[in-house]
Amino acid sequence: MLRIMPRTLPQRALFHRSFERVSLPELHSAIQEDQNTCYCQKLNARLPSATDPLDSQIKLPHRTPNYNKHVLLLSPGDKFSEPWKLAWNHNLDTNLTRPYNAISKLRSFLGNSPGILINAIHLQNEFMPRPTENDEWIHFFVIPDMKLYRIKETDIEKFASFLNEGVVQAPKLSFQDYLGGKAKAPEQDREIHHQNLTKFQGETFLRDWSLVCGHYKRDAKCGEIVTDIITAFRDEKLFPESNLAIISHVGGHVFAGNVIFYKLFNKENERNKLDSLWFGKVYPHNLKLLCQNLENKKIIDEMYRGGISMN
C-alpha cells in the first residue's frame, strides 16, 4: 500500500476539523506525474483548437478564499441535458433567460457586499429537489445556512437584503461632493437602518457537498474534464452520501479540474459549522486518493488550493 508522507507544515488551526497537510512520496509522485501527463494529452485532444491546453506541470498557489456565504442557483432538471455546456454563458451575468437571469439581478442588489459568492450548479444526484423547466420559483441553496430557498423573481431584492443581513450601508461622499465642500452626507442619506425584511425560512438539507467546476463556455478544459471527474465519483463510489454537482466558474481554470468540498462539522447545537476545501489539478485517476485522504483528515498538498472554516 502506498503511504502518504507527512510534511513539516503545521495543521490548519482555522478549520473545525484538524487536517494534516501531507505530500506524495517520491515514488508515487513520479507515477502520478506520468499518469497526469498521459491524461492531459488525451484531454487536450478533445479541446477546441483555440483553447489553451491543460498543463499538468503548472504549480498550484495556496491561497485562503475570502468569503462567508456561497449562494448556489440550481439549474432546472429538465431544460438542458448539459446546461454547463449549453446554457451557461461565458459570463453568467449576461444570461437573460430564467432562472439564470436571477444571478445578475441578485448581484446588482447585493452591490459591493463582501464575502458572498454566487454560482450556478447542476445537481448530479437526487438528495435535493431540483426545479423544473416551468417552475415559478427560483431555487437558491445557501452555504453555510445549509438551506434551500425558493424565491419568487419579484422577491430577489428582498432576498438580497436577507442574505446581506438586512443592513443598508451608508452612501459615501462622491468626489463631486468633496469638490462642493460637503463634509458629510445628509443625515437621511447616511443613516444605517434595517429594512422590514421578508423572513425567508428555507428548507434545511444537512449534507456535505462535492462541487466540480464544469463551465464550458468560460473554459473548455473545465467543461471537458468535469464529465470524467463526475464519472470517477460515481464509479469509485466516493462520498456517496454527499450532494454532487457541477458548478460554474470558480476561478483558476488553468488548474482544472477544480473541486470544492464542503464538510459539515457536527457538534451539539452547532450543526451548521463546516469546512470549505478547494482543490485543483484533480484528475479522474487521482480523485480517489484525494478523497480517501480527506476521509482520514489529510490534505494532499500538491492538489490543495486553499480552504477556510465557515459557520
Rank of each mutant, 00 (worst) to 15 (best):
A13S: 15
L14W: 14
F15Q: 04
H16S: 13
R17F: 15
L24Q: 05
E26I: 05
H28M: 02
S29F: 02
A30E: 15
I31C: 00
E33S: 14
Q41R: 15
K42L: 13
N44G: 13
R46I: 00
A50C: 08
T51M: 07
L54K: 01
D55I: 02
S56T: 02
T64Q: 12
P65E: 03
P65A: 03
L72I: 05
L74V: 03
L74E: 00
G77P: 02
D78N: 14
D78A: 06
K79T: 13
K79C: 13
F80W: 15
F80L: 05
S81M: 00
W84R: 00
L86C: 11
L86V: 14
A87F: 03
W88N: 05
W88G: 04
N89K: 15
N89T: 13
Y100T: 06
Y100K: 02
Y100F: 15
A102P: 00
A102R: 03
R107Y: 11
F109W: 14
F109G: 00
G111S: 10
P114Q: 13
L117Y: 04
L123K: 03
F127G: 12
P129M: 04
P131S: 04
T132N: 13
W137L: 12
W137F: 14
W137D: 14
F140H: 10
R150I: 04
I151H: 03
K152P: 02
T154S: 15
T154G: 11
D155T: 06
F159C: 12
A160W: 03
S161M: 15
P171R: 06
K172D: 13
K172M: 11
L173A: 07
L173S: 09
S174E: 08
F175K: 09
Q176Y: 08
D177Q: 05
G181R: 10
G181A: 10
G181D: 06
A185N: 08
P186Y: 06
E187G: 08
D189F: 02
I192M: 11
I192T: 11
H193F: 09
N196Q: 15
K199Y: 08
L206V: 05
R207I: 14
S210T: 14
L211E: 04
H215Y: 07
D219G: 12
A220R: 06
G223M: 01
I225P: 01
T227K: 12
T231V: 01
A232M: 10
F233E: 06
F233N: 03
R234H: 13
D235C: 04
K237A: 11
S242A: 15
I246W: 01
H249F: 13
F261P: 03
F261C: 06
L264R: 08
E268Y: 09
E270R: 09
R271E: 12
D275Y: 09
S276W: 02
L277N: 12
W278L: 08
F279T: 06
G280H: 11
V282Q: 00
Y283T: 07
H285F: 10
N286M: 03
L287D: 03
L287M: 01
K288Y: 00
L289A: 14
C291E: 10
N293M: 01
L294T: 05
K298Q: 14
I299V: 09
D301Y: 04
G306A: 04
G306D: 00
G307D: 11
G307N: 12
